[in-house]
Design a protein around this nucleic acid. Structure first.
Length: 234
DNA sequence: GCGACAG
DNA sequence: ATCTTGTCGC
């Protein structure tokens, strides 16, 4: 059945908490498929104050990182941004774009946390569970957990923990740049997630799948929100 | 009460 | 997330 219909999306935060707790125990930690040959990057963009969301998925070959396919989608949301509930705002449009994919993908990178979340269900885990797809969360900032700064070299990392449990890793993808927050989304293990993120890093701090998805979705948004009269509904 | 708080 | 030029550092 359609992953978008797995549960209600237009819910209160109290209901969202129940859904998150329910889906969190469906998250599986297990080895990634081997070999990984196809990686997707997924990202969302929108105009300030707008609830019209745009999504892009960029599919790359691995380890070459050549673009194989790009899919875009746009969709209205009613869920406001709230820390801890990002997926209730952004996941539906991502699922819609994913449904348009022709390629089969082995793994997806998402912008945000996986299990490094107060209830263990960041957007990467939420999307991973609904699609039953291996996913990794790559956040640009921390949502949950504690850590000490890793060394300054590319590849240096430290544990992201909560109450003694390792939830993810704080990873330095390039020398002397701010870290990225890596956690498994679904059907992955942290050590492999860290290694794959590093192997997807080229000239930028953000690994290629997520970085290219961000570029693609911004271009898509700029092309499709010009002339739309609902984009600045303040 | 205070500080934290993905995108 | 988005709005933005120049500018500091490798």
């Amino acid at each position: 059945m359609n992953p978008l219909s797995a549960h209600a999306w237009d819910v209160s935060t109290a209901e969202a908490v129940i859904i998150q707790n329910d889906l969190a125990h469906k998250v599986r930690t297990e080895p990634l498929p081997s070999p990984v040959r196809v990686i997707a990057g997924m990202d969302v963009s929108y105009n300030r104050f707008s609830d019209l969301l745009f999504a892009s998925i960029v599919v790359l070959s691995f380890p070459e990182l050549e673009v194989l396919e790009i899919q875009n989608a746009s969709r209205q949301t009613h869920f406001p941004y709230q820390s801890g509930f990002l997926s209730f705002r952004e996941a539906p449009v991502l699922l819609e774009a994913f449904g348009q994919l022709r390629q089969k993908v082995d793994l997806a990178f998402l912008d945000g946390q996986g299990i490094a979340h107060p209830r263990g269900l960041g957007i990467a885990s939420h999307v991973g569970v609904l699609l039953d797809l291996p996913t990794i969360g790559v956040g640009k900032s921390k949502l949950f957990g504690q850590y000490t700064d890793p060394g300054p070299e590319a590849g240096d990392w430290s544990d992201l923990t909560y109450k003694g449990k390792i939830l993810g890793a704080v990873l330095r993808t390039k020398r002397n740049v701010s870290c990225v927050y890596v956690s498994i989304g679904h059907r992955a293990v942290l050590a492999s997630a860290i290694e794959l993120v590093m192997r997807c890093v080229r000239k930028h701090r953000i690994p290629e799948p997520t970085r290219l998805a961000h570029e693609a979705v911004n271009q898509f948004r700029r092309e499709h929100s010009a002339g739309d009269s609902q984009e600045d509904a303040s």
